[in-house]
Design a binder for these strands. Structure first.
Lengths: 117, 117
DNA sequence: TCCGTATATCGATGAACGTCGATGCAAGTA
DNA sequence: TACTTGCATCGACGTTCATCGATATACGGA
């Protein structure tokens, strides 16, 4: 099984593949897509993504995320790491604070493969 | 944590929610979306979905799926059950065979919530 | 009615996951 | 330098998951 924190070749997501409903997915493509979906498939991570994306400047620091999420700081930190490793967020440190930002193309590169039309 | 085989209110998927990037997801909506994404977040299940969707008549029986997937029959059966419980497939029995078919709106109701635009 | 075939369910096993408290580490401040 | 604050990492714990072999069930044919 593919691990959640395994490093992902993010560029592969953008260039990859026909929609899943058009032709059978190769084992490799299925694995790559599954890793990214698995990173999304958690309520806390979906909410983190959502809060970051809808923040002003589409950016948020960890300190702003802990309270709304309602989980411990280490747990929030862990989820942010997963989302970053999967290519959905970028991290930038400014002073003591760490700011996370949504990578614009990240979500659509996933949805493109799930399109029905 | 929400379990993978918990029964899902499929109708909720169709009517639900603004895109995740527009406004913060409620805890409940995040949970519902996570369950469906979790059902998708497995290589074997993605390939099953893919094979079913790209079959003639967009339908396939279990016997046609076991060999291409390369897993045991009970495991394939399990994955099909998960996908069906999550509202992605329907099952219809004809004689000894069980045919699975993609529910047309199922995937797009998920992708709609992940849209960036 | 008995047999073979197709599929589902059961029970077990090992791996992965989400979560937390404790701790480490940097950067700013007095 | 010492203290504080923000965040990441570590180690542990209980839960969930993917997978399998064995078994149950249901159907069609001889």
């Amino acid at each position: 099984m593919v691990q959640l924190l395994e490093v992902i070749d993010v560029s592969a997501g953008a260039t990859c593949c026909a929609p899943l409903v058009k032709e059978p997915l190769s084992q490799q493509d299925a694995g790559r897509l599954a890793v990214r979906l698995k990173a999304l498939a958690d309520p806390a991570r979906l909410r983190l993504l959502s809060i970051v994306a809808s923040s002003s400047d589409q950016e948020a620091c960890v300190c702003d995320l802990i309270k709304p999420i309602g989980l411990s700081q280490p747990t929030v930190s862990h989820h942010l790491k997963v989302l970053t490793a999967a290519g959905f967020l970028t991290r930038s440190q400014r002073g003591t604070w760490a700011y996370y930002r949504l990578i614009p193309e990240a979500l659509s590169s996933v949805t493109r493969m799930l399109e029905t039309a």
